[in-house]
Protein backbone atom coordinates (compact mmCIF):
# COMPACT_ATOMS: atom_id res chain seq x y z
CA UNK A 1 0.00 0.00 0.00
CA UNK A 2 1.47 3.26 -1.08
CA UNK A 3 0.97 6.38 0.98
CA UNK A 4 1.31 8.94 -1.77
CA UNK A 5 1.21 9.17 -5.56
CA UNK A 6 2.29 12.16 -7.57
CA UNK A 7 2.15 12.83 -11.29
CA UNK A 8 4.54 15.49 -12.44
CA UNK A 9 4.43 17.06 -15.88
CA UNK A 10 7.38 17.51 -18.19
CA UNK A 11 7.77 21.06 -16.93
CA UNK A 12 8.08 19.60 -13.42
CA UNK A 13 4.80 21.05 -12.30
CA UNK A 14 2.42 18.83 -10.36
CA UNK A 15 -0.44 17.48 -12.41
CA UNK A 16 -1.91 15.23 -9.84
CA UNK A 17 -1.20 14.59 -6.21
CA UNK A 18 -2.87 12.41 -3.70
CA UNK A 19 -1.94 10.85 -0.42
CA UNK A 20 -3.74 8.72 2.08
CA UNK A 21 -3.55 11.28 4.79
CA UNK A 22 -4.51 14.65 3.30
CA UNK A 23 -3.10 16.50 6.29
CA UNK A 24 0.38 15.43 5.28
CA UNK A 25 0.07 16.41 1.66
CA UNK A 26 2.42 19.34 1.92
CA UNK A 27 5.14 17.25 3.48
CA UNK A 28 4.77 14.68 0.77
CA UNK A 29 4.98 17.38 -1.84
CA UNK A 30 8.36 18.36 -0.49
CA UNK A 31 9.45 14.74 -0.54
CA UNK A 32 8.30 14.29 -4.10
CA UNK A 33 10.08 17.48 -5.09
CA UNK A 34 13.29 16.17 -3.61
CA UNK A 35 12.76 12.94 -5.52
CA UNK A 36 12.56 14.98 -8.72
CA UNK A 37 16.18 15.96 -8.20
CA UNK A 38 17.09 12.31 -8.40
CA UNK A 39 14.83 11.74 -11.38
CA UNK A 40 16.41 14.60 -13.25
CA UNK A 41 19.87 13.32 -12.50
CA UNK A 42 18.91 9.86 -13.68
CA UNK A 43 17.41 11.21 -16.87
CA UNK A 44 20.49 13.27 -17.59
CA UNK A 45 22.78 10.31 -17.11
CA UNK A 46 20.43 8.02 -18.97
CA UNK A 47 20.67 10.01 -22.14
CA UNK A 48 24.39 9.36 -22.29
CA UNK A 49 24.51 5.76 -21.26
CA UNK A 50 23.18 2.84 -23.16
CA UNK A 51 20.14 2.39 -20.98
CA UNK A 52 17.16 0.56 -22.29
CA UNK A 53 14.85 3.20 -23.68
CA UNK A 54 11.83 1.05 -23.12
CA UNK A 55 12.49 0.77 -19.41
CA UNK A 56 10.45 3.52 -17.84
CA UNK A 57 10.74 2.36 -14.27
CA UNK A 58 13.53 4.16 -12.46
CA UNK A 59 13.52 2.05 -9.35
CA UNK A 60 13.87 3.40 -5.86
CA UNK A 61 14.94 7.02 -5.97
CA UNK A 62 15.87 7.41 -2.37
CA UNK A 63 14.97 6.36 1.11
CA UNK A 64 14.17 8.42 4.10
CA UNK A 65 13.94 7.18 7.60
CA UNK A 66 10.21 6.99 7.25
CA UNK A 67 9.58 6.53 3.56
CA UNK A 68 10.81 4.99 0.37
CA UNK A 69 10.30 6.83 -2.88
CA UNK A 70 10.02 5.22 -6.29
CA UNK A 71 9.97 6.83 -9.69
CA UNK A 72 8.79 6.13 -13.23
CA UNK A 73 9.13 8.35 -16.27
CA UNK A 74 7.12 8.06 -19.46
CA UNK A 75 8.61 8.73 -22.85
CA UNK A 76 6.93 12.12 -22.86
CA UNK A 77 8.74 12.93 -19.60
CA UNK A 78 5.72 12.65 -17.37
CA UNK A 79 6.98 11.50 -14.01
CA UNK A 80 5.10 9.22 -11.67
CA UNK A 81 6.24 9.09 -8.08
CA UNK A 82 5.11 6.62 -5.47
CA UNK A 83 5.90 7.04 -1.80
CA UNK A 84 5.82 3.96 0.38
CA UNK A 85 6.20 3.65 4.11
CA UNK A 86 9.63 2.26 4.87
CA UNK A 87 8.14 -0.19 7.29
CA UNK A 88 6.08 -1.67 4.50
CA UNK A 89 7.84 -4.84 3.49
CA UNK A 90 4.95 -6.25 1.49
CA UNK A 91 5.66 -4.13 -1.55
CA UNK A 92 8.59 -5.43 -3.50
CA UNK A 93 10.09 -4.03 -6.62
CA UNK A 94 7.74 -6.02 -8.80
CA UNK A 95 4.63 -4.81 -7.04
CA UNK A 96 5.79 -1.23 -7.32
CA UNK A 97 6.50 -1.77 -10.98
CA UNK A 98 3.05 -3.08 -11.65
CA UNK A 99 1.54 -0.19 -9.70
CA UNK A 100 3.38 2.19 -11.95
CA UNK A 101 2.11 0.39 -15.02
CA UNK A 102 -1.44 0.68 -13.81
CA UNK A 103 -0.98 4.36 -13.08
CA UNK A 104 0.51 4.83 -16.51
CA UNK A 105 -2.46 3.24 -18.17
CA UNK A 106 -4.85 5.33 -16.08
CA UNK A 107 -2.87 8.39 -17.10
CA UNK A 108 -3.05 7.39 -20.75
CA UNK A 109 -6.82 7.12 -20.37
CA UNK A 110 -7.16 10.55 -18.84
CA UNK A 111 -5.07 12.09 -21.60
CA UNK A 112 -7.38 10.49 -24.14
CA UNK A 113 -10.34 12.06 -22.45
CA UNK A 114 -11.45 14.93 -24.70
CA UNK A 115 -12.51 16.97 -21.70
CA UNK A 116 -9.05 16.93 -20.25
CA UNK A 117 -6.61 19.47 -21.57
CA UNK A 118 -3.10 18.03 -21.53
CA UNK A 119 -0.84 19.98 -19.25
CA UNK A 120 -3.60 21.07 -16.90
CA UNK A 121 -3.81 19.64 -13.42
CA UNK A 122 -5.98 16.54 -13.34
CA UNK A 123 -9.08 16.95 -11.24
CA UNK A 124 -11.20 14.08 -12.47
CA UNK A 125 -12.94 12.27 -9.66
CA UNK A 126 -12.91 8.91 -11.33
CA UNK A 127 -9.19 9.25 -11.98
CA UNK A 128 -8.60 10.07 -8.35
CA UNK A 129 -10.68 7.05 -7.40
CA UNK A 130 -8.72 4.73 -9.68
CA UNK A 131 -5.41 5.99 -8.37
CA UNK A 132 -6.56 5.56 -4.80
CA UNK A 133 -7.53 2.01 -5.63
CA UNK A 134 -4.12 1.36 -7.11
CA UNK A 135 -2.50 2.85 -4.04
CA UNK A 136 -4.43 0.71 -1.63
CA UNK A 137 -4.03 -2.32 -3.82
CA UNK A 138 -7.71 -2.96 -4.26
CA UNK A 139 -7.47 -3.44 -7.98
Amino acid sequence: MAVCVGIIGKDNSPKFFTCLNPAEELNFQYKVLSALDVVEEKLNCGSKGATDLRELYLGMLYTLETHKIYGYVTNTKIKFIIVVDSTNMALRDNEIRSMFRKIHSEYADIVCNPFYIPGEPICSKSFTGSIKNIMTGTV
Partner: peptide
Amino acid sequence: YRCPRTRRH
Protein backbone atom coordinates in the same frame (compact mmCIF):
# COMPACT_ATOMS: atom_id res chain seq x y z
CA TYR B 1 25.34 17.38 -5.54
CA ARG B 2 22.77 18.94 -7.87
CA CYS B 3 19.65 18.69 -5.77
CA PRO B 4 18.12 22.11 -6.33
CA ARG B 5 14.71 21.17 -5.05
CA THR B 6 15.92 19.47 -1.92
CA ARG B 7 18.13 22.43 -1.34
CA ARG B 8 15.14 24.73 -1.67
CA HIS B 9 13.27 22.67 0.87
